[in-house]
């Protein structure tokens, strides 16, 4: 593997981690939004607070990791993408800011009226961020970001690939979140909550699957380089994703929640990985390859040193945090 490819792999590992952990966080906004009135939804919202409260900031840092690795290792492609995709980047950012702030505010708000306001902002913006990230991915994958960054400010991210990308991102995040929340609710002994969540997660899963199916045709026409990769090199991954996705539905239906969590993660991870593999060797599809976009060698080495440090310092700590949150003591108040 060349140095640029290693750096690209490190970058993509961040995308993967953000997609899974950040995604599950975002998706919980969907269930929060649809939890019902303040009395009926109270239990679910408390569960959301409890489940993502300790971890959301850590999960959010994956985004910082992705941005920083991107601009350090592939600076010109970063500048090109932010210039062309100014609008969706900005809107995704607004989503992230509103969501993080409103989540923290809601937890400590003094009155029900305030909590409802902050809650609505939190839940709504939780859907905004993945949607626009989806459109960004779609724009890059369909070759709409020119190397010099002078792509169209609007049409670059409003193609079918982008828009379906956004909707699929929302669906996937929600599905992932649902699977995690069901398991959390069950573990904490909230049986009724768990069965309600289970039903809704199944619905989300089926709908998202259907959207993916419908989207295939336009995407194949719209993003030819990507679809060649998806049906060629990445086909096994996409297939694996479909199978594990279906398995998740079955496991959910049979109330095997911990197992469903595992298959859901595999399903989302493989589809993201499939995108990466299909797009290889392009950094900006049809415009700049990984090798062409890479920054100075000395910097690539430095960034790999930083990644190695992260593996040694951050991953064990992250593991500790997740282990604590799943432990008996942290599950019950």
């Amino acid at each position: 593997m060349t140095l640029p490819v290693l750096a690209a792999a490190a970058l993509f590992a961040g995308v993967l981690a953000y997609g899974l952990f950040g995604g599950a966080d975002f998706g919980s906004g969907f269930f929060d939004l649809t939890a019902g009135g303040s009395t009926r939804g109270g239990e679910l919202r408390t569960l959301v607070d409890h489940s993502i409260g300790p971890v959301w900031e850590a999960n959010h840092v994956w985004l910082i990791y992705v941005l920083v690795t991107w601009w350090t290792a592939f600076p010109t492609t970063f500048a090109a993408a932010t210039e062309t995709l100014f609008v969706p980047f900005l809107l995704a950012l607004v989503g992230i800011v509103l969501r993080g702030a409103a989540f923290a505010f809601r937890k400590y708000s003094g009155t029900l009226a305030q909590a409802r306001l902050f809650g609505a902002v939190f839940a709504g913006s939780s859907l905004m961020a993945p949607f626009f990230f989806g459109t960004i991915a779609g724009a890059i994958a369909s070759g709409r970001v020119p190397a010099d960054g002078d792509g169209d400010l609007w049409s670059s991210w409003t193609s079918p690939t982008s828009l379906f990308g956004g909707v699929i991102a929302i669906g996937t995040c929600s599905f992932l979140a649902g699977v995690f929340l069901v398991a959390d609710a069950e573990r904490a002994g909230h049986r009724d909550l768990a069965s309600g969540l289970r039903r809704r997660t199944l619905t989300v899963g089926v709908v998202t699957g259907a959207v993916v199916f419908v989207a295939l045709v336009p995407i194949i026409h719209d993003a030819t380089t990507l679809s060649e990769g998806l049906t060629g090199r990445a086909a096994p991954l996409i297939l694996a994703s479909g199978l594990t996705g279906a398995a998740t539905l079955v496991l959910l239906a049979r109330r095997r929640f911990p197992a469903a969590r595992l298959t859901a993660v595999v399903a989302v991870a493989t589809v993201l990985l499939g995108w990466g593999v299909a797009q290889y060797p392009w950094m900006l599809v049809d415009e700049v390859t990984i090798d062409q976009g890479a920054g100075a060698d000395a910097t690539l080495v430095a960034i790999l040193v930083a990644v190695a440090l992260a593996i040694v310092l951050v991953l064990p700590a992250l593991g500790y945090l997740f282990r604590l949150t799943q432990s008996e003591r942290w599950t019950h108040d």
Binding site: W71, T72, A73, F74, P75, T76, A79, G149, A296, I303
Partner: peptide, 10 residues
């Protein structure tokens, strides 16, 4: 960020 991203990024 384009020209200097790899200088100041680390």
């Amino acid at each position: 960020m384009g020209p200097f991203g790899d200088v100041l990024g680390f």
